[in-house]
């Protein structure tokens, strides 16, 4: 128990330390702006970003874009993670499945996520189906890899317990393989969230913004529009929101992961 208290205190300290650098940069920015060193074409005053924030909330454009991005990311992530988990566990648990599918999955994983855009847009158009498929594809591979590695690397000592106790294959999977693989599965879950979040922004920014299918929605489209009209305050705001929500999602998943593997000695 004392360990936990110490850990908490440290983390609290870390939180405030982590805020030091951003705060210093904002102060520097404000100081440079006040001193008149800033090119107004490329940079705006900190105060103007705050004004744009209030405007964005009062006309609903900013929360709307944020929610659209969040739901899109979570939907794509959930789909990708579900398929990735099933595929990874299958590849990790069954030698036959590994022999049949592992070379293909490993090859497909080498393809950069945005390289799928031409193919997917030809098949699915530039709408929601295409964006979510792209995000899901991004989330699929890290999840599959994490689950597969976790299942393959279960120590022989624990596997032998399963055979000595005459557990069925299914029971072994449930009681031994999956719990033992859980840390690796959760690492895959975290990584796939990162990729899904990046993929969401990419999909929104690159697909269906302005040129082909009219303006899309989400923070990516918000940023694309702000750039189009040279609104640096909104550009900065969009980046800020992407960062803050990305970090929050990441923390949330890591926090839940820690709880799920509480049997591990920390």
């Amino acid at each position: 128990m004392p360990d936990v208290a110490v850990l908490r205190q440290d983390q609290k300290g870390l939180f405030w330390k982590a805020l030091l650098l951003p705060a210093a940069l904002i102060l520097l920015w404000a100081a440079l702006d006040l001193a008149g060193f800033v090119n107004r074409q490329l940079f705006v005053a900190p105060g103007q970003v705050v004004v744009a924030l209030f405007e964005g909330f009062s006309d609903g454009s900013l929360p709307g874009a944020t929610l659209a991005t969040l739901f899109r990311a979570l939907a794509g992530w959930a789909i990708g993670v579900t398929f990735g988990l099933v595929a990874g566990v299958l590849l990790g648990f069954s030698g036959i499945a590994r022999g049949l599918f592992d070379p293909t999955v490993t090859s497909l994983r080498q393809i950069a996520l945005f390289a799928w855009i031409p193919l997917l847009s030809a098949w699915l158009g530039n709408g929601e189906a295409m964006k979510i498929t792209l995000i899901a594809l991004g989330a699929f591979f890290p999840m599959a890899l994490g689950a597969q590695a976790g299942c393959v690397n279960v120590p022989l000592a624990w596997r032998e317990v399963g055979t000595v106790l005459e557990l069925s294959r299914l029971k072994q999977l449930k009681v031994i393989i999956l719990p033992a693989a859980l840390p690796s599965i959760l690492a895959g879950l975290e990584l796939s969230l990162n990729v899904a979040w990046l993929g969401t922004f990419g999909a929104e920014y690159l697909i269906g913004t302005g040129y082909i299918n009219g303006m899309g929605d989400g923070l990516g489209a918000y940023l694309a529009a702000a750039r189009e009209y040279a609104q640096m305050d909104r550009v900065l705001l969009g980046i800020l929101f992407l960062g803050i929500i990305g970090v929050s999602l990441d923390r949330l998943v890591i926090g839940m992961s820690r709880r799920a593997v509480s049997w591990q000695k920390h």
């Binding site: 624990w158 000595v164 106790l165 719990p179 049997w263 591990q264």
Partner: peptide
């Protein structure tokens, strides 16, 4: 093959840490 007819206790107890 391995089976319940012969119980075994290993040196490294091999309890499953999550149970």
């Amino acid at each position: 093959g391995p089976g319940l007819q012969r119980g075994i206790v290993f040196q490294d107890h091999r309890l499953l840490p999550w149970l």
